[in-house]
Nucleic acid binder design. Structure first.
Length: 212
DNA sequence: GACCAGGCACATC
DNA sequence: GATGTGCATGGT
């Protein structure tokens, strides 16, 4: 069923072309992954624009920027006191480790890389997986609030399951394929934004359910 | 004015 | 390991 819903959503919406950063560069994806924590993407875009126009669009520049200046730039994305500190942390990490994260790797080494990312302050499971998948094209499925709701409402899965367990369920039901993981997460977000997972039950939701 | 938005750290049990 | 709370801002 997990794979079937993917097909239905893909037929419905087509390719999503995430990550929706303007330049699509790796560092911008990493930055966006932090900034979007509990925040609408349109506000992230404002913060990203601020960072670019202030010349704080590389890890080097973030690292050397005044915390206060950085904080001000990311304010539209909320939690700016936290996120500005997080950005400095991931900037330092990125400068040291970027090259090793680009390479394809075994399952166990990927697990280690994820673990190392999780040790950076401000990087939780969802953010780490977003970075691995969207910035480094590693085969990791991202679980977010939308995925939980989809799982709960349409797949008969307990949406309160721990993150890693849910991830395991999705990954074991899908081919180990970066493009599939990438598109599926984006499609779920698109679906949830337009469908009954928000309020009421819209036409799109009906159509999808009808095909199940 | 309430509620939500592509979470996370930390304390506590 | 599970649960609760604080963290900030902008749009609807």
């Amino acid at each position: 069923m997990i794979h079937r819903i993917y097909q239905v959503l893909f037929d419905l919406y087509g390719e999503q072309h995430w990550w929706p950063c303007k330049t699509g560069n790796r560092w911008e994806i990493v930055t966006g992954a932090i900034l979007t924590q509990n925040c609408a993407w349109r506000n992230v875009e404002k913060a990203l624009e601020n960072l670019t126009s202030a010349g704080m669009d590389t890890p080097e520049n973030i690292l050397h920027a005044e915390l206060e200046t950085l904080c001000k730039a990311v304010r539209p994305a909320g939690f700016s006191n936290q996120k500005s500190v997080y950005l400095k942390g991931i900037a330092a990490f990125f400068l040291e480790h970027e090259s090793e994260y680009c390479q394809e790797t075994s399952e166990s080494e990927l697990h280690n890389r994820r673990k190392k990312l999780l040790s950076v302050k401000g990087i939780g499971r969802e953010t780490a997986d977003s970075i691995l998948l969207y910035a480094f094209q590693q085969p990791v499925f991202v679980i977010d609030a939308y995925t939980r709701r989809l799982a709960g409402r349409h797949l008969g899965i307990d949406e309160a399951l721990p993150y890693d367990r849910l991830q395991e369920i999705f990954m074991s039901a899908l081919p180990r394929d970066v493009q599939v993981y990438n598109e599926y997460h984006a499609l779920i977000v698109q679906f949830c934004k337009e469908s009954c997972l928000k309020k009421g039950c819209g036409e799109i939701c009906q159509r999808v359910l009808g095909k199940e």
